Amino acid sequence: MHRSCHDVIAGDILLERIRLLIAKARSCGAPVIYIQHNEGPGEPLETNTPAWHIHSAVAPMEGDVIIQKRTPDSFHNTNLQDKLDRLGVRRLILAGLKTEMCVDTTCRRAVSLGYDVVLAKDAHSTWDSGNLTASEIIEHHNHVLQWFAETMESADIVF
């Protein structure tokens, strides 16, 4: 089923929290890296379709890095690790969509690659799925991912 940012629980709040994290990063010169998921023809995130584009509220600026991916793992078959190495980045702040897929998978992979990972526990989201509400999914992943990464409220994250 096709989903949009309007199906995301508290989507407007999520966008604002991510926007503030990006602003904090930029204010201290930390690199901002976007991960953009690409799917094939007819899929919800088909490349170059409206749903695929990064939301204008958190749009990249000149100098930001955009990594294209095709799997939930932002490192798998991408140049993300190479970009991070060239930028000298060892600490990652994670936020975005989809909690139980891309956020979870990328968080675990980053930790296994030796990165210091902070999950903005109030700046990732999803939608209801099966018998679970989006809130239950987010709460569960925040609990589980605390064993892999530091989990913090976005307002408390310092770059």
Rank of each mutant, 00 (worst) to 15 (best):
H2C: 02
R3C: 10
S4R: 10
I9D: 07
A10P: 06
I13Y: 05
L14G: 09
L15W: 03
E16P: 07
E16I: 08
R17K: 15
I22K: 02
A23V: 05
A23I: 03
S27M: 06
S27K: 02
G29R: 01
A30V: 02
P31M: 07
V32H: 03
V32M: 03
Y34H: 06
Q36S: 11
Q36H: 03
P41H: 11
P41K: 09
G42D: 03
P44C: 10
P44Q: 08
P44V: 13
T47I: 12
T47W: 09
N48R: 13
N48D: 14
I54E: 02
H55I: 04
S56K: 06
A59H: 03
E62M: 00
G63W: 00
V65G: 06
I67T: 11
Q68A: 14
T71H: 07
T71V: 07
D73P: 01
D73L: 00
D73N: 15
S74Y: 01
F75V: 02
N79G: 11
L80C: 08
Q81Y: 04
L84Y: 07
R86H: 03
G88N: 00
V89H: 06
V89R: 02
V89I: 07
R90I: 05
R90H: 11
R90V: 08
R91Q: 12
L92T: 00
L92V: 04
L94N: 12
L94V: 15
A95V: 03
A95G: 12
A95T: 13
A95Y: 05
G96S: 12
L97C: 13
L97K: 08
K98L: 15
K98P: 00
E100I: 10
M101E: 14
C102I: 07
V103D: 00
D104T: 13
D104H: 11
T105R: 11
R108S: 11
R108W: 03
V111A: 10
V111I: 05
S112Q: 08
L113Q: 12
G114T: 01
G114E: 01
Y115H: 03
Y115W: 05
D116I: 03
V117I: 07
V118R: 07
A120C: 11
D122W: 02
A123E: 10
A123F: 05
A123N: 12
A123W: 02
S125G: 15
W127T: 10
W127H: 14
N131L: 13
T133A: 11
A134E: 08
A134D: 08
A134W: 07
A134N: 05
S135Y: 07
E136V: 08
I137K: 04
I137W: 02
H140D: 09
H141N: 15
H143S: 15
H143L: 13
L145D: 12
W147F: 12
W147D: 15
A149V: 04
A149T: 05
T151Y: 00
M152G: 07
M152W: 05
M152F: 04
E153G: 06
E153R: 06
A155S: 14
D156T: 09
I157E: 12
V158T: 15
V158K: 04
V158W: 06
